[in-house]
């Protein structure tokens, strides 16, 4: 089990924090990119319908 009194706790926390930031950032950008394209596709579809 992780020892809360360890002097290195802040470094471990920072490392996993960085991991969360990077993975989270990638996920958020990917999802936002997809949403933007999906909306653009809907707009293009609507414009074609008579």
């Amino acid at each position: 089990m992780i020892d809360p009194a360890s002097p290195y706790l802040s470094y471990v926390a920072a490392a996993y924090g960085a991991c969360a930031v990077v993975l989270g950032g990638m996920t958020w950008r990917a999802w936002r990119g997809w949403r933007r394209v999906r909306d653009a596709w809907d707009r293009v579809q609507r414009r074609d319908r008579p």
Binding site: I2, D3, S6, Y8, Y11, V12, A15, Y16
Partner: peptide, 11 residues
């Protein structure tokens, strides 16, 4: 290394 070895699991 104590607890800091856990950083290896990300690195």
């Amino acid at each position: 290394q104590g607890e800091s070895v856990r950083i290896m699991y990300v690195h």
